[in-house]
Each structure stands twice: as structure tokens, then as C-alpha cells.
Design a protein around this nucleic acid. Structure first.
Lengths: 204, 204
DNA sequence: TAGATTGTTAATCGATTAACAATC
DNA sequence: TAGATTGTTAATCGATTAACAATC
């Protein structure tokens, strides 16, 4: 299948979300259907899916269940993925409780903080543990994804800790640029930046 | 200044974040400094800033405070912006309490829900009010930005309500594509999709 | 002057769209 | 067969990078 463009990868989960929400008895979907459901053009859907070798049928469309299987496989969503959150403040706690993760196959398997008052409290499906345990816990939990939900000034340290513990995919919510080894995949969500971009459009 | 590319607009808040974190006494910064701090190339920084008419000085760099002022103005960050959140679950509550918004000049001025048990509870700086009050409250609060933090099936309805109330910039955290009038700026943050993109890279 | 750094152009790269032959 | 829809190519569009003259 070769290398998929970043933009294609970013759209696949949106296609999958649409497909998953379709009535169970649906048998085929067209690129036009998916385009509507995901908010992109039909040509782009066909292009993306053809990169996956997604076996549509001309005149008919794509087999729903086959297509879901292909996209899931490409995204590596076969088994449940274990997630560790660092930072048990408001945001970390909300993420630990976020129902949308579970539905999509992610399990919050651990949440960590350095604040003694937070350690031991229950946050979502697990108890908050002291950050010092992260590396050790990896042996049992095999975290595959780390989420940084700390203040900006802790983000780099926490990222380094995660990498040292063996985590290779990290989602950073702290408003700071952090630098990690090439081999680690890092994504950044900055909530204030989202609002600032909206502000720009208000100002136009 | 003409029209700024979307990509430029998305980077400006990152530049500003870096500049804001610099020691107060700093007088000038180079495109290379900003590039490091924001995680992009220096050529791109210069290109972006030149689109703003940002008056750097060859051989010297950019005047820090002047540059901050220019970017802030372009982003429309002069006055505090009032934000209304709809959905007082875990995520909405966390957003209401998110310190990063206040620092960047956003004020959570209202939070709404339809769940009677949540109405009246305190969430961040304000009490949760019933969603029915949203339109009426606009008269006092002049919300400029709306945040949707509801389940997916409520997102379209809430978006329509916000637009009817006069809100023209919306940040949607619900995992659903919603359709709003052209004139409304809509941004989408889907937390599960971020994890799915990380999952793809794990699978490679 | 010599060194540093911008501003801008042209080249390159990458992504999206339009169009349509293939084919179900 | 006629209508629908894919898969793919070429054209277009847009964004980034490289390079360097201008100039502080």
C-alpha cells in the first residue's frame, strides 16, 4: 500500500466514524455518501480509499463491512489500546472519564500526578498514582499511548519520562512545544490556540 | 495585508505563545529564534511575518513588543472574548476550569446544560444554567465564541441554537460533523480521532 | 567594513480537484 | 442496455523551502 499521506491518515478516522454510525443493515456506501458524512469531496474519498487498496465496485460502491475492516486495520485498531494519562487536574480527569475513548477502543489504563493530594483519588476507571510509578507500571500495563495533561512547564519532563518508559506515541495537551526523539510520534492539541484561530475569523 | 493563508493563521498563535514566554527585557528576536520556539522553519516564519507587514530589520531581527502587538492585533486579541460552553459534563466542566483560556484572554462567561441535576452547580467561574436561557443571556453576555461539549447526537441542535442566538464562531468537541451557515466559523476537535491517528503510527 | 538577518523570488513539493474511461 | 460509480490520470492549486540580494 506504500506510504499514506498525512492528510489521508487524518481523514480515515472521520470516514470510519461515519461508517460506524450507519444502520447495521447497510450493505454498500458510495464515495459520495462518505464525502457527505465526513465533510470532504467525493473525489478525495475515492483517492484516499484507492490508496488503501479498498476494493470498491464500479457502479455499486464500497462494501460497508469490508471497508470498515480495511480502515480499522490500516489504523491499527484491532485490539484495545492502553492509554496512560499524566496530569490529574481538571483536563486529565475529564479525559480519563471521556466516554468517546472507550467507544473507539482506547482504554485509560493509568493516570498519574505528582501532587500528593491527587494521588489515590479515583479518576475515571482508575486510581491516580504517583508519577514515580509510571516506568514500573509499564511492565504490567504495556501503555501504548501517553497523554500529557500537565501545565506547560512540566510537558518536556513528562514527555521524556514517557519515552524513557517506552511509550512511542504521545498526545500533548500542554501549551508548549516539546522535543522528543524522531522515533516517537507526537501530536499536539492546544485548546487556547483553537480559540485564537476563531478569534482571527471574528476579527475579519 | 490581503488574505492570510489558513496555515499562516494557524501558526500565528504558536509564534505569539513563544514570544509571550520570552523574558520581559528581550528586545529583538530573529526568525530563527521564533522557528525554534514554535517548531517550524525560519523561512516559513519570515514568510508568515512578511504577510503581516511585520517590519523586521535586516541584520537585527524583529522588535519583540512590536511583533507581539502586530500578531495580537491580527488575531483580534485586543479585548477579552466571552465564551459560552454548552455541555456541563466532564469535558465541559474541565474546559470551564481550564486556566489556559484565561491567560490567553478568553473568559468563560456562561455554561449551559439540559440535565436538571447539573443546572445550578458551579462549574469554573460560573453556575451552570439551563440551555433554554442561552439566547436570552446573549443580551447581557454578548458571547463571541461557543464551545460544544455535548454528546455527538446533540451537536447539530446545539450548533443551530448558538447560531440562532447570534454566535458566529464555534468550537465543536462532539464527535460529529455538523453543518452551519457559511458565515459561521466552525472548528472541530475530536479527541478520539487524535488517538486513532497515533494508533496508525504505532501500527507502522 | 564584516557579519547578521530580513524580505522576496523562484523552485519544489504535496495535496486536491476535475474529468472520464472502465466496468459493475 | 442504461445508469451508476469507481479508479486513475492530468491539471490545478496552495504551501513550503531554498537561495540570495538588500540592508541594518
Amino acid at each position: 500500500m506504500g506510504v499514506l499521506p498525512k492528510t489521508t491518515v487524518a481523514r480515515l478516522p472521520r470516514y470510519l466514524r461515519y461508517l460506524d454510525d450507519l444502520p447495521r443493515q447497510t450493505e454498500t456506501v458510495s464515495s459520495e455518501d462518505i464525502a457527505q458524512g465526513a465533510g470532504v469531496s467525493a473525489a478525495l474519498v475515492r483517492k484516499d480509499l484507492s490508496l488503501l487498496g479498498a476494493a470498491g465496485r464500479r457502479g455499486i460502491g464500497y462494501d460497508l463491512h469490508r471497508l470498515e475492516a480495511v480502515i480499522s486495520r490500516v489504523l491499527g485498531l484491532g485490539a484495545k489500546l492502553a492509554v496512560a494519562i499524566v496530569g490529574a487536574g481538571h483536563l486529565g480527569t475529564a479525559l480519563a472519564n471521556y466516554a468517546g475513548f472507550k467507544v473507539r477502543g482506547f482504554e485509560i489504563a493509568g493516570i498519574y500526578d505528582i501532587h500528593p493530594a491527587r494521588v489515590g483519588t479515583v479518576s475515571g476507571p482508575v486510581q491516580v498514582r504517583h508519577l514515580d510509578w509510571l516506568a514500573e507500571d509499564m511492565a504490567n500495563e504495556q501503555y501504548q499511548i501517553g497523554i500529557i495533561a500537565t501545565p506547560a512547564n512540566a510537558a518536556q519532563t513528562v514527555g521524556d519520562l514517557m519515552v524513557a518508559a517506552g511509550i512511542r506515541s504521545i498526545l500533548n495537551f500542554a501549551p508548549a512545544v516539546i522535543r522528543l526523539p524522531e522515533a516517537v510520534t507526537l501530536r499536539q492539541v492546544d485548546l487556547a490556540i483553537e480559540l485564537q484561530i476563531l478569534s482571527f475569523h471574528l476579527a475579519q
